[in-house]
Design a protein around this nucleic acid. Structure first.
Lengths: 155, 155
DNA sequence: GATTGACTTCGAGCGTGCTCCAGGTTCTAG
DNA sequence: CTAGAACCTGGAGCACGCTCGAAGTCAATC
């Protein structure tokens, strides 16, 4: 059964107030790369929780492990943030973690995997459209019932 | 995060070959009501598993407990089957079990609960449309990426 | 009267996607 | 220097929606 699930809509919308990068040079985080995001900043930027960011990395969704400062704290690049943002789009359209992991593996395999990545996305798209259609059909039948109630009430 | 989930598409489509009711009078099952369905027949008719039918009853989705033959076996009425069919529509559009249970309680409360039932369905409908919209928006962004891949490959 | 098979209940188990906790660093502010 | 916030890892816990196993009942058939 294809189902439209509603897992506890996190309050955070994608792309919020603007997290503002770590300060220039060796700013906050005390170390390393300029122009990078702490996990909290990356969370704010992408709209997922820090827990989820760590989970995604463990689950192999990050192509390569996220870079670390000398303190071992994660430092997300702009690119990482973009990547996570794209992951959320895949999630929001119902792609399972397992498949996102596969996509990530392909992406880290370089140019040669592009056809396969394209195939994966295309197939995903097909399924999403199929499910949208199913949901719409079922909703139409529910609408029918709603109309029935409306007719019998408030009159 | 609202998500389009894809829980292991059961092979059985809703409303299959036609299960054919229990034989007339005191036919199979050995007892009681004519024109009723065994759990297996109800499963075939609704496209959900017998496990799920029992689960739905336990979860309070059946308004009233399903009638039993003298053998204690369940006997689904035509009406029960219709009800389950409607439940599957709610499920397929992402309504959580808890809310379906509430709807069932309202339905068994009689006429007076109709406005509330209407409100519940209407609210559900609103959320479904919202989610459809979100999925569509995200899919559009994925499409964008697909187009990008297509442009770079196969040329 | 024994076997077969569809059914019963109760409760445990499972896959998914997080979410959180414990115990231990590290950074930032005062 | 110190308090407190933010971060780390590893693993446990949770909500959801089923799904299944065990042990037993019942009716029909051999």
């Amino acid at each position: 059964m294809a189902t439209l699930e509603v897992p506890a809509t996190r309050t955070s919308p994608i792309c919020q107030p603007l997290p503002a990068r770590i300060e220039d040079g060796a700013g906050s985080g005390g170390t390393d790369d300029p122009g990078s995001f702490t996990i909290a900043e990356a969370a704010a930027a992408t709209g997922v929780s820090v827990h989820t960011l760590r989970y995604y990395e463990r689950a192999g969704l990050m192509r390569d492990p996220v870079a670390r400062a000398s303190s071992r704290h994660r430092r997300y690049t702009e690119d990482d943030v973009q990547w996570v943002t794209f992951l959320t789009r895949l999630r929001l359209t119902g792609m399972p973690i397992r498949e996102m992991a596969r996509y990530a593996r392909l992406a880290s395999a370089g140019e040669s995997s592009k056809p396969e990545r394209l195939a994966l996305l295309t197939e995903h798209r097909r399924r999403v459209l199929e499910q949208l259609d199913e949901v719409q059909r079922n909703l139409a039948l529910i609408d029918y019932k709603i109309a029935f109630y409306q007719e019998r009430i408030a009159r």
